[in-house]
């Protein structure tokens, strides 16, 4: 499966960015880390195994 790396698949990018940012308002670094992992786990289960391997590869290659 090829992962979409070229175009944004979210309608309003700025609104999404802001929504993601404010989720962390008032949270300690630990609470934020837990929240991020919850989001990652939910997304991971949504996309499934095949895309996940590619996503993990792209993510670590983008440091």
């Amino acid at each position: 499966m090829s992962v979409n790396l070229d175009t944004l698949a979210i309608d309003d990018g700025d609104a999404f960015y802001e929504a993601l940012r404010v989720l962390h308002d008032g949270k300690t670094p630990h609470e934020s880390a837990v929240l991020n992992f919850r989001i990652i786990l939910l997304l991971a289960n949504q996309v499934g195994d095949e895309a996940l391997q590619e996503i993990l590869r792209v993510a670590t290659a983008s440091e």
């Binding site: 630990h30 880390a33 837990v34 991020n36 992992f37 919850r38 786990l41 939910l42």
Partner: peptide
């Protein structure tokens, strides 16, 4: 944090 997220979900 990863474990807390997993257990919470």
């Amino acid at each position: 944090a990863l474990r807390t997220a997993t257990l919470g979900l």
